[in-house]
Design a protein around this nucleic acid. Sequence first.
DNA 1: CAGGTGTACTAGAACGATTAATACACTCCT
DNA 2: AGGAGTGTATTAATCGTTCTAGTACACCTG
Lengths: 135, 135
Amino acid sequence: MFQIDRMGRKPIYEQIIEQTEMMIVSGALKPGDQLPSVRALAQMLSANPNTLQKAYADLEREGITTSAPGNGRFIGKDAKVRIQNRMMNLLADIEHLSAKLHAADIEKSLVMAAVDKGYARSLPRTAQSKKGLTT
Amino acid sequence: MFQIDRMGRKPIYEQIIEQTEMMIVSGALKPGDQLPSVRALAQMLSANPNTLQKAYADLEREGITTSAPGNGRFIGKDAKVRIQNRMMNLLADIEHLSAKLHAADIEKSLVMAAVDKGYARSLPRTAQSKKGLTT
DNA sequence: CAGGTGTACTAGAACGATTAATACACTCCT
DNA sequence: AGGAGTGTATTAATCGTTCTAGTACACCTG
């Protein structure tokens, strides 16, 4: 359910956040679904409960998940929309990178090709949404 | 000549590398131009010579600058081309981001618009190259 | 009540970035 | 020759973040 890379610079808790978001956005996780408990996930990944707690706390703060002490942690109702809004920030990153490439006299067509390539990748196997595919 | 941000996550030495690259690519620094000495730059930025040394060592390793012990450090002959080649890696980043946005059902047109916006920014004031502007 | 859950707290190890203080070899200029 | 400025190397200490470790408490469900 989760795959973490212990090499590489990205912290474990960021990987958990990212992967959870991707599973929600792809439909692998739907509102109401329960997430593994911090202890269970810690054992699955042979990591520390505190590390996972930190990841979960982030999702909690963003309103993506709902905590029910004594019960468990579940995907929030409008989780997908919240994540999509969060993703909009990536557009700013792309703009910044584009400006940098522009300054370096890299042809715009190469950038557009990179975007095309990204959008050419097939969506994850699970449940593509019935609308919104505008490619 | 250099502006560093001590807040924010990006290490100082990375900022120096990045800014130097941008100045070369924009023509503000041309082959043969001398860079500030590690000690001089350290004083200018009130940073540590070792930190700047680390940044300069990186540029050196990539063949972007040439060190002349006892003399100084200068911009290499084909510095701009080397940097451009380096920048090509950013295309992979853009592809990755695009794939993520695709998975989140973000419309491709929004991404393209971000690229346009990046390429709409006017180039730095100094010396635009006479060819290669293909936008 | 028992077990599993979320949450909080303190402490420490590990790592990278930065600072600090020297030291040495080289080149240029007087 | 000598001094000043250059690049380079080495070692140590500090600092913040990440991650681990251990413990504790409150809550809900059976």
